[in-house]
Structures are given as structure tokens and as C-alpha cells.
Design a protein around this nucleic acid. Sequence first.
RNA 1: GCCCCGGUGGUGGAAUGGCAGACACGGCGGACUCAAAAUCCGCUGCCCGCAAGGGCGUGUGGGUUCGACUCCCACCCGGGGCACCA
Length: 918
Amino acid sequence: MSYDHTTIETTWQKRWEDEGLYRSVVDWDRPKHYALTMLPYPSGDLHMGHWYAMTPSDARARYMRMKGYNVLFPIGFDGFGLPAENAAVQRGVHPAKWTWENIGRMRTQLRSMGAMFDWQREAISCEPKYYKWTEWLFAQMFKNNIAYRGEAMVNWSPSLNTVLANEQVIDGVDERNGQPVIQKLMEQWFFSITNYADELLSFEGIDWPDAIQAQQSNWIGRSEGAKVDFTTEAGDTLTVFTTRPDTLWGATFMVVAPEHPLLGSITSETHRESVDAYVDQASKRTELERIEDGGDKTGVFTGGYATNPVNGENVPVWVADYVLISYGTGAIMAVPAHDERDFAFARKFGLTITPVVQPPDVDRLDGATMQGAYVGVGTMVRSGPLDGTIVTDAKGRQNPSVSAAIDWLVENGAGLEHVNYRIRDWLIGRQRYWGSPMPMLHRADGEIEVLELDQLPVVLPEDVEFDGRSPLKEHPYFASAIASDGSEARRESDTLDTFMCSSWYWFRYLSPDFDTAPFDPAEAAYWLPVDTYTGGAEHAVMHLLYARFFVKAMRDIGIFDDTIAEMTTRGRDPEGLFDEPFLQLRNQGQILGETRTGDRLVIDGNAEGQRILATSVLLDSDASDDAGLVVGELMRRTENILQIAPTEGGNVTVEVPAEATVDIPAIPGTNDVNQLKHHLEVERMSKSRGNVVNPDDLVAKYGADTIRTYLMFAFEWQKGGPWDSKGIVGSHRFIEDVWKLGTHSYKPDAIDDASTADLRRKVHQTIQRIDQAIVAFKWNTVVAALMSLRNELVEAKRSGAVSDEAWTEAVDALLLMLAPIAPHITEELWNQRGHTSSIHVEAFPEADATVAKEDTITMVLQVNGKVRDRVEVSAEVTAAEAEAAAMASPKIQQWLDGTTIRKVIVREPKLVNIVATP
RNA sequence: GCCCCGGUGGUGGAAUGGCAGACACGGCGGACUCAAAAUCCGCUGCCCGCAAGGGCGUGUGGGUUCGACUCCCACCCGGGGCACCA
């Protein structure tokens, strides 16, 4: 019978679902494992990236189940979001209709993967029974002062007609649509994530990739320093934040941001006109335009002065947009002698520069002649009481000068020690339609009222028209409501950022229909927290940071109290289980578009014997064969030597001297020869580039098992890479071979004990390798180990020299170990081989170390670290025997001839290294 | 500028400080076939050599070590994050 993947896969998918094989039920007698894959957005079709992300997630969940864990592996959809509204505007489809149709299609496609999702726990964030609790959670945050309404400079996207969170803006443009955003002072809803900054900087107790930890730490941006109070002429306190309070004595002017609230009172009448003009012009510039200016600084003098508290000196106050209102206090003390930006500003406008840190071994610095700011180590000078204090390159209190300066400020009442963070509060409201409503009322008297549970959910109305703006403000249900005291009110028409929906979804999976709380404590007490979370690293400072904040906030509000009580009743210690959402996080890489062949180099130069000395190298994929002296593909580069494969004939060696010109159009600026190898034609797999591989077509052609196997085998999972459609045949051959082995009725020919032992050893070594590889998420080596076992079985089948028992053990082990990766074919073969229960509830094979152990080992014999011979020795060889065996080798004797042995290193049974000199 | 990750055959990629290149793809040669596909067998890092064998080889340069893809230092290149952040 030949392998018919379509029949096998559809049959088993249906049977598993009918029999409820993947239903997960609380069972306190068994250890639990909560495996989670990132909530997919229902964009329309499942693409290869989803398969790539979810297959290892599924395989690992299956492995844990075979290892004896009670595994929960749920799935759902992130139903709200802008693409649905865009579809409405562009194609006239209602967002709800568009979303639900996509969900329907993706459900079918997800089922074709054969993943062990427990569909009865499916949660969809745009359903009222879900977003009722999103609203309720917001209400709890509001009541506990974690959500608040406040005025701040926010990112406004004119193209989307909504505000965006800081995390959604990169280099002044929307991270999703690339359109510019502008800064606007607006009253908005925020979550005070800033209050959790310090806790979020600690990753204790969780196993997350270094890169994510680094990104989150960068984003939070903790700086230690001091707040220092300067006094303006009008008597106001102008506070600055500085990480270098030790340079206060060198502060020769101050700069405030154009939006600074004290700017008006600082500005003198004679300067008001020019200040107003500057502020007006600055407000019109987008962040993007400012960034494009680079280091060139603009600004004007306010005409006002302030007093430096450390020495009583009057310093001029300037306004300039290189000082940002959103960071620190929006005002700085400028120390041009020791800060690059202040130095550039001072030189441009002719301001005083006073050095207060003296570098070692250099003449006394002179502000008038300095070429740049000095930011290195030295000794404090011109700093009154602190003269002579050592300045190191350490940050904060670690630096003696900073520490001394803070102490001085505190003692003299001139300032306070302060830690500043870069992260800003999470802007949570959106002026959009397709999102969770907010459970808030604005009363006629201006007060804000939060709705109670019995009034939830505020249902999103569906009878609306679209023109790119939110229709909620005008909708009768939102425009007029009655407050608790019977007065007139309007509903809040902002909706919640969809990242809030995805900040708690793994709790909703526990009990998607639970009606009296966001989740059922009886489920939560058993399943929480998530043990393993997998998904893309692009969510590092958005979803993954928000999720951590959310759990901490929920914990502080007391939302887990019932769960903790239930845990305690069950004898499970709740200590520390609600500080972090996901104990282990692993990120997959990205699947890119298929590499285009035909990157061609056009080389001109002179032939010198065998090689060519280039004068110019140009990368031009469309170049014709006669466009230069040599035209062809770059096969290899070693330093400045290129191997070029022309269309016809053998490789040509080209030397590229330093003076030759190299031109790679895709890499801007001056190119050099070192960049050549790295210029591969790889593109991100996306619809717009037309290089998408459709998983549905591949499923039809090869079957889900082959694709799953290939995706795990072809890449280093955490790295990803360009799709290679040719490589899939290797995985397909493997699956076909498994079919042949699994359906073969083995009859031994002439049983040979050594062959039998060899096969058994291979089986048990493979189990050991796979256990290690799965723990490390090294899926390519898991598949490689199974392929290697396949090779042994093919050989055993041909020889007929292994015993019946060994054959059966090996084939069964192969099927069991492959089951997490290729669930359908293994289930079918398991069934055909006479087993009545599912392979997916079987125990994973246990390695027997005694069987796995080698009896003889190839020992390497080295002379001076170079391998000169190999001998077979017993695994139990002693050091003396090993050395004797080495000395007995004729080849080794030859190499030792005429030398003196200095030392013999024996690492039995693997190696003997003889150190000898002439 | 600061922080994180990486650089190994034609390609994807393996290697607790101990045989570099497992496992695949591709390529080459052969078998089967009228032929092709599929399948099966063999070879496949580079260089010298008919061979036996030898030399070189994990981005570059140094170091530690009997021994380094692996550890340390410096540099080059690529990818990602942060950035007039005071």
C-alpha cells in the first residue's frame, strides 16, 4: 500500500477531534504543562510563518504530553484591529464580517496542520463575552489608579486619525504603516506602566532570551542621577535631571524644551517675539524632520536667567528643540565642556565653556580652545568643595564624583537623588472603531464615571458607516447615556488599544465561557502560569512588555486572590507564581522569501597569468555576459580574492586590490569588497513582494507531516532564513521511508548478534540525543537524529541480520519519537501495527544507558595535536593500555622517529596525544 | 555612539576544550529503463599526488592550552535594539 497523505491526514484529524483526544482537563494527580503560542491575528490566510512558529510549539507540547504531563495547548484569535477597518474603507466590507470570515478560513487551515489545539478553549477577543472582561479589567485598573486620564504630548497619526503608543512609533513613523506621526498635547487614557519600570527590569525567575531582556532594558532606559533645582528671575523653580551632577560647577547655561511650561515666565519682553517664533516653528516640525537634521542644533535665547544652586552664578536660559519635553524634566543644565551636544550648541552660539573635569597627564583644559567635549575620566576642578574628587567612567553612585555631588546636593538642599526612566506611560485609548469599548462615562458636570460589572459589556454597535474616522462619537448609544445619578452623560468613544486584548488572553483560554470573572480560579489554580511561550521577537517591547506589566498590575489589584486561595487549598504553593506571565520564552526566526539566483558581478580589469586583477566590481543581476571582462555569479570570497562562476566554463579567480572600485547598489554609500559575500538576495516573505509560499498548496502536494518535518529540519529555528523549495524533497523522502519501514513485515535472514546490538545501541543513543535536543529547542538536530536512525533501519532491512525484537523495538521507537513532529503518519502506522490506542498518549521512549553505551571506541592518536592514526579500543580501556596501544602503532612510531617525547596526554578511551620535539 | 546576537563546504546547517563539516539539499559517476520520472548504489571542504600519503582549512590578527569552531583580547563584516535620553 502506498503512502496516501491526504486520506491519512484528514481521517485522523477528524477522528482525534471526534474522540476529544486533545481535550485538556484539570487533573491534580498529574503534573501540568501550559504551552502557549502567540495569539494569531486573523489576517486572512495562514502563511508559512504561522506554520514555522506553531509547529515546534505543537511538537514540544506533544513531547511534554508523552513525557507524562497533562498539557494545555490552546488557540484563539486577536479579533480587533485596524486591518479590519481598512478593509471596510477599501472594499466596503463590515469589519465584523471581514474578521469572522477570516477566522473561519484560518480555523480550517490551522486544523490542516494537525496541531493538538484544544478547540473547546478557543477565545476570540472581538466577541462580547471576551471583551466584557477586557472592559472589566480596564475598570479595575482605573479604580486602582493604574489607568488614568491625563494630558501629555502624544503621538498623533494623521493618516490613521488616532493616537499611538510610544512603542508603536519608530523613528517618528508608525511602525506598521510607515506614515509619519506628529507630537500633540492631548488629554488621553494611560496605564502607569512607568511605576513598574524597576520591577520590569528584573528577569529573575524567568528563562527568556538575552536579546529580549536587552531590548526591554533598553526600552525602559533606567538612568541614575539627581534632580537639581535652579531658580529663575521670576522666583520659579526650574528643575533639571542630570546623570552628571558632578559637572554642575561647569553648567554655563540652561536649555528648556519649546513646550516647557515655564518658558513663558522665563522669557523677557525683549525676546518674546523671537521665542514665540521659534516655538511656533518647532511645533510644526515632525519628529522625523528633527531626526533628519542630525546634529545641527537650533535655538534662541529667552532673555531670562537662572541661578545655579551650587555656586550662585547666573546662567542664561535658552530654548532649543534638542531638549525633549518627554524626557526628564524637559529642561537641562548645559555643561558644554563635558557633553557633546551642549558643546556643539555653545560653539554655535558663542556661549561660555568651563571645564570642571581635568584629564590626567594633560595641560589644564581651556574652554576657549577645546576641540570637543571631554567625557573621560579625571579629577574634579573649579568645583569648590568637591575639588580633587576622582571622576571614573562608572555610572551613577558607582562613580565617586557623582556620588559626592549627590551627597553635597542633598546636604545643601539643592537637589535630590533621582532615577529617571526613558519609558513613558502606555497610551491606551484609540480614536478608532474596531476595538474593545471602554467602560467609562463622561458626565455633563465633567466628572468621569466607571461602569460596574452589571452594566458590562458596553457593546460595540455594528450599525455604522465608515469613512476612515471612528463613527462611535456620533452613534446614539455613545452620544447619550444616563449616569448613575440620573444625569446626562456621553460614553467614552475611544476604544482600547488591541494590545490590551492580547495582554490577558492566556487567562481567558482557561475558561472562555466563564461568566462571573475573567477566568475560573479552579482552572487557573492548576494551569497557571504559562510554562513555555513561543512566538516572534518583534513583540519584544510591545506585547511581551505589556503582558509582564499586566500580570503585575492584576496581582497588585488582587485579581488572583481567589486563584491563590484555591491553590492553597490544593496544597500548591502560590509564592511567586503571579509575578510573571511566561516562565520560559523562545522566539522563532523569520522565514524569508526564496533566494533569487543570478546575483551577477561585472568585473573589469587586467588578466595576469591565471588570475585577474580587478579595477572595478559592479553587482548587476541583469548584466549580459559581455558587460565586462568577467561576468558571473560570486561563488566564494576569501579576503579580497573572489571565485566567479561565469555562465560557461570553469571558475575564474579575481583579485580585488584596495584601489579597485566596488559598487553594490543595494548597500548605500561607498562599498568595499568585504560586503560582497553578505549581499544575498533575500527578501522578507510578504504578499507585496509576490514571493509567498502557500502552505495549502504544499499540504496538497506533500502532506502536513512532510511540511512540519521540513520546517523543523531546514532551519536553525531561532534564526530562520530564506525559504528553499528544493530542500523539501529530503524531508519527503524521509517520510516515505518511514512509511516503507513501518509497513514492512520484517523477516530476519541470518541473525547476527553484533548487528542486532548495533541497531539497539543506535536506538537508545537516538533517544538520548532527542531528549537533549528538544529541551534546547534544536529541532533541526531532532529531525537529523531521526533521519540517521532511518538510515540504520534501511540498512538493517536490507541485511536482514538483526533480530525480530530489535527490529520491532527500533521501528516503534522511530514512530514514537517522530510522533510529535509528524503526528498523522505515525498514528496511522501505529494503528496498522496493531495498537488500539493513540500513539499520542503513549509514553516517550526511555533511553537505556547500558544499551546505548559503546563497547569499542575509535581512539584517536595524535602527535603534537595532529591526528596521525586511529585504533579500535575497548570502551573500558585503561590509561596505561591506551598509551601502550598508541606506542604500538607503526604510524605513530614513524612520526616519533628522531624525536624526544616530552609528554603524553591520555584521555582514554577517546584520545592519546604525544608531545614530542626533534 | 551604546547594548544584544551572529560569521563553519556550492547551500541549509552539526559539533560537553579532544577525529571539523553529523543530517540533508545540490552536484558528479553508475544501476534499472526504449526513454524520462521515481527508486537504488558510490563519490563529493580546498590544494598537491597515478596512488599511498601529505599540506591547508571554522571572518582577520594575537593570546591561553599538550590540544581552540568552542575560552580570552583587539579588529573587520552582517543582523537586531536604543539614541540630541541630559
